[in-house]
């Protein structure tokens, strides 16, 4: 098992502080300060009062990446797909085949596991809309009692197409837990940054529990018998109410990413070793 923290140029040597005529190396241990994200910056905001009933409306701050539980054993199909995935952790960015390398959509449920700095809920008649700060994604969660579509991606003429963010329906369990069920996520998307796969048979259950006015707990449960030998909860994460009800714009901009690959990622990955 390996754990790598790169989001960036892989193959980095120790930190370098160089004068105009000499190189010197110090500790390679990262030396960072300050908050990692708005969630951390907000810190303990207190309960803020009781949770309103049947209401998630508003802007919420989360960790930049959710803490994930280990996946269960994969099926032979799952293992085969997994081996094809070259992650940014195992390979230099330039050599990975992570779909987001070129700013393709994270897709669902990966967008609820990574780049979760901010989410927003708003309610319309018959549906709740969940939006993400990252890439300004939105998901339609139907609440009018309709069933999820069947046979997404099937061969029949009326089979719905797979979607990057799937098809979702939601309902309330009690006054404070909104349950969202999703099918139809496009197989081109990865489950997580470790390159775990999912199939078109994936079913996801999200449970959003508003603990009080300022705190929201989210569990994401994966059920994909084509890829995994048993269902599992991949994460339980927390979000905090944002007092200003605003957050940064954060997009993966293809032209800027291309510039990054040219200026940094590609040179960082290849050439003579020092």
């Amino acid at each position: 098992m390996r754990s790598l923290f790169t989001c960036c140029v892989a193959s980095l040597a120790g930190v370098l502080v160089v004068s105009s005529f000499a190189f010197a190396q110090s500790s390679p241990k990262p030396n960072f300060g300050g908050p990692e994200d708005l969630y951390e910056k907000l810190g303990d905001t207190g309960a803020g009062g009781p949770a309103p009933k049947h209401d998630l409306t508003g802007f919420w701050a989360g960790k930049v990446a959710a803490k994930l539980n280990p996946v269960p054993a994969m099926t032979p199909w799952g293992q085969q797909q997994f081996r094809l995935h070259k992650t940014n952790g195992e390979y230099p960015v330039a050599d990975s085949n992570d779909p987001i390398k070129g700013c393709d959509p994270l897709g669902f449920p990966r967008n609820m596991l990574f780049m979760t700095r901010g989410i927003v809920f708003t309610t319309m008649p018959g549906k709740t809309i969940e939006m993400s700060e990252y890439n300004r994604i939105w998901r339609e969660i139907w609440t009018d009692g309709r069933e999820l579509p069947k046979n997404v991606g099937g061969r029949s003429a009326d089979a719905p197409d797979p979607r990057w963010y799937g098809y979702s329906v939601g309902h309330w369990e009690g006054d404070y837990t909104f349950v969202v069920n999703t099918v139809g996520s496009d197989e081109r998307t990865w489950l997580d940054n470790a390159g775990h796969p999912h199939s078109i048979d994936l079913r996801v259950e999200e449970r959003y529990t508003r603990v009080n006015h300022n705190h929201l707990e989210v569990t994401v449960k994966i059920d994909d018998p084509k890829a995994y030998t048993e269902p599992f909860v991949i994460t339980k994460s927390e979000f905090t109410w944002i007092p200003e009800q605003d957050f940064e714009e954060e997009l993966c901009v293809p032209s800027e990413q291309a510039e990054y690959l040219k200026l940094i990622a590609d040179p960082a990955a290849h050439g003579k070793t020092k």
Binding site: R2, L4, A65, V71, G89
Partner: peptide, 10 residues
């Protein structure tokens, strides 16, 4: 660099 999230392969 937490923004890469968990990238362990196991």
């Amino acid at each position: 660099r937490g923004d890469q999230g968990v990238s362990s392969r196991y």
